[in-house]
Design a binder for these strands. Structure first.
Length: 576
DNA sequence: ATAGCCTTGATC
DNA sequence: GATCAAGGCTAT
C-alpha cells in the first residue's frame, strides 16, 4: 500500500538517511477509494525519507529586501520605532491603524516558510503559499528529480524560488512539508489526518497573537512605552512575533554588563522574559559556578521544593534509552592521556574553566521542568528553549573569559552576535564526542526529544554535514583542548565589522591560535597537519550555523518559535 | 514548469 | 450548508 523510496528510483539519487516522523500507518480516517497504488487517500510515502544535502555556501538574503531592525536605535531610542521591525520580512503588523484585537482572519498575515510569499492556507502539513503548495505537489506526484548546480544551499525567496528546484524542495522538507499528505490515488476533496493538527495550530497561533497583544499593552502601560506615532492608541502595532524585541536587544547589552534590575513586568508567555532570566542569572551567579546561572525556569517559575525534588530525582530519569549520563557524561580533565608535551598555561586554564557537568545538569533540568505535568509539549518550542539556555551559558562563559572580558560591551556584543550559532554547533559536537551526549532523550512525559537537533539548530538535513564534520574531527583526535581553543577562535574574530578595539581581539585571536598550533604539534605529533585541518573545519561549522539561523528565523517570523528569548534577539541582531 | 484559480468532498 | 485542504486546469 505504500510506495516507498526504493520504488521511487527517480528520487533515489538523493541520499537517504534515518528520519522518523510519526508513521502514517495508512488510511485511518481516510476513506478507501480503491485501485491505484493503494487505499483511498493513502499516503504516497508511508515512511518519509530525508533528502540529505551538504551545505557549504552561506545563504544570502535577497539584496532587494530591507532589514530595518536597528539594534543601536533600540538602545538609544526607547520608542524603538527607529528599529523598523515593520520592515523585517515576516514581521507583519497584526493590527492596522485603529483596530484593537487580531480576531479577524486578516490579522494573521503569515509568510511562506519556504519562499516568504503570502500564505494561502495549510498545505501538506503547514501554512505555505499557493506556489510552494503546487511545487511540492508536482514534485512528489511526478517523482521529479532535481539537481543543484551550486552548493545545495541556494537561498530561496519569492523572486528566486524558480532558480533551484532542488534547494526549494529541500527547503520544503526542512520546514516540515509532509510527503505523506500527497495522495497516491490523487483522490480529490475531503480531509486528511492532519486536520486536527491544523486546528490545534490555528488555536495556538491565535492564542499567541492575543498574548503578544497583551504583552505589548502591559509593556506600554508599565514602562512608559510610546509608539512612534506618539502612543495615541492608533499606532501600528509591532508584530506579534517579537513584541519585546526592542527591550530584548537592550537586554543583551544589560546581560553582558551585569545588569541592574529592570522594572519590566513578566511576560504573559509561559517562558520568562530574557530580562527576568538575566536577573535571575545574576542572583545565582553569586553563589554557584558560572554555568549554574542558567536555570531560568527553576528560579522563576518552580517552587523551591519542586526544584530540590527534581534535582534529587534527576539521576533516575535520564535518559531511558541511553547510558546513564551522570557517569559517562564527563571527560577526565584536560588533555588526559594524550598530552606528551607541555600544554600552554592558557589552554590549561581554558579547559579548567569548562564545566560540562553543569551544562548537562542545566539541560536535563530544563527538559524536565518544561515537561513537568504535561502530557505533550511542542518539541520545536522546547528545542528553542534549550538553545536559549545554552546561549545564556555561552554569554556567561564569554563574559568571564580572558581577552573577551577586557572588551567594551559594544565589542562584546558584536563578537557574540557574530559567533553564537557557530559556537552552539561546536558545543554540541563537543558534548557528543567528549561527553557521550546521546542523540535522543526520553522526556519524563514519554515524548522523545531529539538532542541532536540542538546541534543542527533544528534543521534535520544538516545531520549529514554535521556527522561528517564530527567524523573528521574524530580522525583528527579532536579533544577538549582543541574544542575550547576553537571556540575562542570563533568568538575572537577580528574580522567582525565595526569593532572598536580590533587590536585586542586580534591579539587574543593570534595568541589562542598560536597556543593551539603549539598544542597540536606537541601533543599530537602523530596527527599529520592537525592544526591546519582543524582550521579548515571552521567555515564548515559556520555554514551549518548559517543555515540553522535562517531556519530558526523563518520559524520565528511565522510565529512558530518562542518570543522574548535571547535566541530570537540574536537572530534579529545579525539582520540589522 | 510555474502559479493562480477552480473543483471536489470529508468533516464540522 | 460552510469550511478548507486536497487535486485539477490552464494561461503564462
Amino acid at each position: 500500500m505504500l510506495l516507498d523510496m526504493e520504488q521511487h528510483s527517480t528520487l533515489g539519487s538523493l541520499s537517504m538517511s534515518h528520519f522518523s516522523l510519526p508513521s502514517t500507518g495508512g488510511s485511518g480516517d481516510d476513506a478507501a477509494a480503491g485501485g491505484g497504488g493503494g487505499g483511498g487517500n493513502s499516503p504516497l510515502y508511508g515512511s518519509p525519507p530525508l533528502y540529505s544535502i551538504t551545505a557549504s555556501a552561506a545563504p544570502q538574503h535577497s539584496p532587494g529586501i530591507s532589514y530595518g531592525y536597528n539594534l543601536e536605535a533600540c538602545f538609544f531610542s526607547p520608542s524603538g520605532t527607529g528599529g523598523g521591525l515593520e520592515q523585517v520580512p515576516g514581521f507583519q503588523p497584526i493590527l492596522q491603524q485603529g483596530s484593537e484585537l487580531p480576531d479577524t482572519k486578516e490579522g494573521i498575515e503569515e509568510l511562506c516558510p519556504v519562499c516568504g510569499d503570502k500564505v494561502s492556507g495549510y498545505h501538506y502539513g503547514l501554512l505555505t503559499c499557493e506556489s510552494c503548495k503546487g511545487f511540492f505537489k508536482r514534485t512528489v506526484q511526478n517523482k521529479k528529480v532535481y539537481t543543484c548546480v551550486a552548493e545545495r544551499s541556494c537561498h530561496i525567496d519569492k523572486t528566486q524560488r524558480k532558480r533551484c528546484p532542488f534547494c526549494r524542495f529541500q527547503k520544503c522538507l526542512d520546514v516540515g512539508m509532509k510527503l505523506e499528505a500527497v495522495r497516491a490515488d490523487r483522490m480529490r476533496g475531503g480531509r486528511n489526518k492532519f486536520g486536527p493538527m491544523y486546528k490545534r495550530d490555528r488555536a495556538r497561533k491565535l492564542q499567541m497573537i492575543r498574548q503578544r497583544q497583551m504583552a505589548i499593552q502591559t509593556l506600554r502601560n508599565s514602562s512608559g512605552y510610546t509608539s512612534g506615532n506618539g502612543g495615541s492608541g492608533d499606532a501600528v502595532t509591532l508584530s506579534y512575533t517579537s513584541p519585546g524585541s526592542n527591550f530584548g536587544a537592550l537586554q543583551i547589552k544589560q546581560e553582558i554588563q551585569i545588569p541592574q534590575v529592570s522594572s519590566l513586568t513578566s511576560s504573559p508567555d509561559s517562558s520568562p522574559s530574557p530580562i527576568a532570566v538575566a536577573l535571575g542569572q545574576q542572583q545565582q551567579q553569586q553563589q554557584t559556578s558560572m554555568y549554574s546561572a542558567v536555570l531560568p525556569a527553576q528560579q522563576l517559575q518552580i517552587p523551591e521544593q519542586r526544584v530540590t525534588q527534581q534535582v534529587f530525582e534527576q539521576s533516575k530519569l535520564w535518559p531511558t534509552n541511553s547510558p546513564p549520563p551522570q557517569k559517562s557524561f564527563s571527560y577526565e580533565g584536560p588533555s588526559s592521556g594524550n598530552s606528551q608535551g607541555k600544554v600552554s598555561p592558557m589552554i590549561r586554564d581554558f579547559v579548567l574553566a569548562i564545566d560540562d557537568q553543569e551544562w548537562q545538569n542545566s539541560l536535563y533540568n530544563l527538559l524536565q521542568n518544561q515537561t513537568y505535568n504535561q502530557c505533550e509539549v511542542d518539541l520545536f518550542e522546547l528545542m528553542c528553549k534549550v538553545l536559549d539556555q545554552n546561549l545564556f551559558s555561552q554569554v556567561d562563559w564569554a563574559r568571564n573569559s580572558t581577552f573577551f572580558k577586557d572588551l567594551k560591551v559594544d565589542d562584546q556584543m558584536k563578537l557574540l552576535q557574530h559567533s553564537w550559532s557557530d559556537m552552539l554547533v561546536l558545543d554540541h559536537m563537543h558534548h557528543r564526542m567528549h561527553n557521550n551526549l546521546p542523540d535522543e532523550a526520553t522526556l519524563p512525559n514519554g515524548q522523545k526529544f531529539d538532542l541532536l537537533s540542538l546541534g543542527l539548530l533544528g534543521v534535520p538535513s544538516l545531520a549529514e554535514p554535521f556527522t561528517e564534520i564530527s567524523t573528521r574531527l574524530q580522525d583528527l583526535k579532536f579533544d577538549p583542548s582543541d574544542y575550547i581553543s576553537i571556540k575562542f577562535l570563533l568568538l575572537l574574530n577580528p574580522d567582525v565589522r565595526g569593532l572598536m578595539n580590533r587590536k585586542h581581539v586580534q591579539e587574543g585571536h593570534d595568541q589562542v591560535q598560536q597556543a593551539l598550533h603549539d598544542y597540536c604539534l606537541t601533543s599530537y605529533p602523530q596527527v599529520q597537519d592537525k592544526f591546519n585541518k582543524l582550521l579548515t573545519i571552521l567555515p564548515e561549522i559556520h555554514s551549518i550555523a548559517v543555515r540553522g539561523e535562517e531556519h530558526l528565523y523563518m520559524k520565528h517570523c511565522n510565529g512558530g518559535a518562542p518570543t522574548q528569548t535571547l535566541l530570537m534577539e540574536m537572530l534579529h541582531a545579525k539582520r540589522k
